[in-house]
Design a protein around this nucleic acid. Structure first.
Lengths: 137, 137
DNA sequence: TAGTACAGGATAGTCATTATTATTAAGGAG
DNA sequence: CTCCTTAATAATAATGACTATCCTGTACTA
């Protein structure tokens, strides 16, 4: 919990209970929640927190590069505290979003940059399919 | 123009002037337009066409797999008549979206499927950076 | 050519996100 | 530690992309 506050401060963000709660929650989940989901799951511990605060905090965290925004094709964004660029796997059955840790994409950005003369900063890579759990059903 | 109608019919879609216009426009652009953009650019030739028709047509084309929907992180979707899965390059300066034709990603889906035990159907890959044009400025 | 199912047009509704505004609290200076 | 300034929060209204509705019109089948 302490570290969370430190990270915020290190980025020049004012440290508030709301920001700590949201960032802490994102750091300790593997779920890639949406703003709405974050809001609901913090209702218990922070019942007075406004949904607008969640959005603004996520925006602040995003700009501070403490969080990345995922765009898996749903009607809302999801958020990931693992800010290092990595691909995601989306199960079309249970709608879970999983991190993919692989070195298959290691030099990809560099190679693409060479091929296209683009100056590349980041990439978003999403794979869509059925997760092992759902395949069993 | 004829082929466009044939493609629609082949997919069991009723052939209407509006659908022809929208699909034809998508087939002959490299711009990856949004629904709004499509609507505006067809105003001249089809002034009576409703925005709702654009949305409904795009939905029909998407379901018929004649078009793919892109989600580059803007507040609206873009559409691409090149339905074969291919990566896109987004210029953060001019906001243009470019197709990337490369074989760097050839066996990627297969490898990822093996690594993760997912059954994979598709992927979306976006690279973000500055295009050669904008770099000159 | 007539009938029917489905597409189009107009527009109201929905829902995620953003803007607004008054209030409150964080964090630095003294 | 207390005051002050600035920025964050809460509540809520507004925005804007997209969807639903509903009635009219038209593409296709026989």
């Amino acid at each position: 919990m302490k570290e969370v506050a430190e990270l915020l401060k290190a980025k020049g963000l004012k440290v508030t209970p709301q920001r700590i709660a949201i960032f802490h929650m994102l750091c300790n989940t593997v779920e890639h929640p949406s703003a709405e989901t974050i809001y609901k799951s913090l209702q218990e511990t922070h019942p007075t927190m406004s949904l607008a605060t969640v959005y603004k905090t996520l925006d602040a965290l995003k700009k501070a590069e403490l969080v990345q925004e995922l765009n898996v094709g749903e009607d809302s964004f999801r958020y990931d505290a693992k800010v290092h660029s990595h691909p995601h796997l989306i199960c079309l059955s249970c709608n879970h979003v999983y991190d993919l840790h692989t070195d298959l994409l290691q030099d990809l950005r560099e190679k693409v940059a060479q091929d296209t003369d683009f100056e590349l900063f980041s990439e978003k890579i999403y794979f869509y399919g059925i997760c092992p759990e759902c395949q069993k059903k």
